[in-house]
Design a protein around this nucleic acid. Structure first.
Lengths: 192, 192
DNA sequence: CTAAATTTGTACCGATTGGTCTAATTGGTC
DNA sequence: GACCAATTAGACCAATCGGTACAAATTTAG
């Protein structure tokens, strides 16, 4: 049967709260209230706020990797897949009213140099996504759609960190203008 | 003669503390202690923590713009200036042990969608820098060194937001590897 | 059915948060 | 020297911070 609460639901709630507000703005009590659990349960499952956040990042890292893999199953050419992928991410941020960006980008910027465990978790999630994206880019290089001037991994990192950079602009301008502009320029870049 | 403390020094202290730790991690007391001033003086000069941070961003925005303008006074071709500029920024971050990145990037990501005044200040600082960088890029386009495939402003924004994106990676990997990689790819991009 | 183990719920902890208040002091101007 | 405004100093505030303690409730194992 299991008990009343379970880790996965708390982590899911934590993901939403942390993605929107960042690490230091959010208190444990806010997560408890949002998830509807008492403090005793939280500290039964998690050692500390930092340990909790590490697990939030890890769970999101895994589920987002699965999502990316599924996205790339669609019947399109590698270049078309990459374009559809990043266009879709921009759309998601627009629907979110430019409120959050990516949890890993937010955690990396805010806590990456402050807490080793959060840095490690953020880095591992990022790298696991890059693996998948680089895989598709490699296919595009083999078919001649994508430039061979740089390795597939370099191109994947260039694209994904480039998008992260636009999140800062997106949040202060509350607009997708810079993301669209980045998209056009970046896609031109990888086409060679 | 003036009184014991002055706004500029407090703002300067605030810049260092906020750049390293972000907005929500830092308490007023930490800034007071670091700047060596009592709370009464702080709230004599500033209405609130948010008002203080706005002024920190504004003062840094102005002084950094002056610094960029001076940097571009050096006797080099526009393309060489752009390269020297971004290489220098990477060097600065290495000397800082990858601890901080850029205040405006940090504030934009952490607070851009949370506080209107901080978003406005961050945006204005960023745009004032882009103006100067785009000016040099324009000269490079006129002399044929830099691609005309995109406008000078678009290229400047692409470069600067791209660098911001690598700050997230820099902070979690504590390395300049990604910044160097970004530099090589971006400079190839603007050369056309 | 009982005993052990786990989870739940809440009261509580010292420390810190952003901010207020007021009295004393300082500086510039008649 | 007198006067007033600005500055300085720090005690104080309620609210919240991350975390602990522990008893009660519940589930699982034998």
């Amino acid at each position: 049967m299991g008990y009343k609460h379970n880790k996965e639901n708390i982590l899911e709630t934590g993901y939403h709260v942390l993605r929107k507000n960042g690490y230091h703005k959010v208190g444990i009590n806010e997560i408890l209230k949002e998830a509807g659990i008492p403090k005793g349960s939280f500290y039964n499952f998690f050692e500390s706020k930092e340990d909790f956040t590490v697990q939030v990042i890890q769970q999101y890292g895994r589920s987002n990797r699965r999502w990316i893999e599924e996205f790339f199953q669609q019947e399109m050419s590698p270049l078309a897949l990459i374009k559809a992928f990043y266009k879709h991410l921009i759309d998601i941020n627009e629907q979110d009213d430019y409120a959050s960006g990516c949890l890993v980008n937010a955690m990396s910027n805010e806590t990456g140099r402050l807490y080793d465990k959060l840095a490690k978790a953020s880095n591992e999630s990022f790298e696991s996504w890059i693996e998948v994206i680089a895989g598709i880019i490699k296919k595009g290089q083999d078919s001649g759609e994508i430039t061979k001037e740089h390795t597939a991994k370099e191109l994947a990192e260039f694209l994904h960190t480039g998008m992260y950079g636009t999140f800062a602009r997106m949040k202060v301008t509350r607009s997708r203008q810079f993301m669209d502009q980045w998209f056009d320029m970046s896609m031109k870049f990888i086409e060679g």
